[in-house]
């Protein structure tokens, strides 16, 4: 009974307390985003995501792991599209995606590079050229293979 009471107590709503996010999510535009990528002197992985997107949730732990492993060799960038900022920040906190993220409410960035749907993962070479576009959930094999591609480009 005590356990049941504790469980029920845990489920009852308490006054909402706004917890500040540990992440930043600045607005971006096409010129700003292109300038950001142009300032990167190494390969880059750009992930298009949204907090409402179920497949984005599925791939988020993998991206966090890949970032932890390749942070010194590859620039990881996230772009939240068609989202609201509060939910997007909560998503970043939940999955601890500790790389640069931008807020693109109007979906200008994926339109620029030509991806379809959400999520999308773009792989850029060290000279800033778009090497590969992966539409949909990126699995470990696909992510590892394309990371190997952009790391071994001449």
């Amino acid at each position: 009974m005590a356990a049941l009471a504790l469980a029920l107590a845990a489920c009852t709503s308490s006054p909402a307390v706004e917890v500040p996010s540990a992440h930043e999510l600045p607005d971006t535009s096409v010129p700003e985003f292109e300038a950001h990528l142009a300032g990167v002197d190494r390969p880059a992985v750009v992930n298009i995501w949204a907090s409402w997107c179920l497949p984005c949730r599925a791939e988020a732990p993998l991206l966090a792991y890949a970032h932890d492993k390749y942070a010194s060799e590859i620039e990881f960038v996230g772009v939240s599209v068609q989202d609201n900022r509060t939910d997007a920040l909560a998503f970043l906190d939940e999955f601890d995606l500790d790389f640069d993220h931008f807020f693109d409410r109007d979906r200008q960035i994926p339109q620029l590079y030509g991806g379809i749907g959400t999520p999308i993962t773009f792989f850029f070479g060290p000279n800033g050229e778009l090497v590969r576009t992966h539409n949909g959930v990126v699995d470990e094999r696909t992510l590892a293979l394309n990371i190997d591609e952009i790391l071994n480009l001449p």
């Binding site: 949730r57 599925a58 959930v137 699995d139």
Partner: peptide, 18 residues
């Protein structure tokens, strides 16, 4: 991966997640 199947049941069908 630290994702609870109870609180995120719909994630189960995304097999590409791992």
């Amino acid at each position: 991966q630290g994702v609870s199947p109870l609180s995120n049941p719909a994630d189960i069908i995304i097999v590409r997640g791992g």
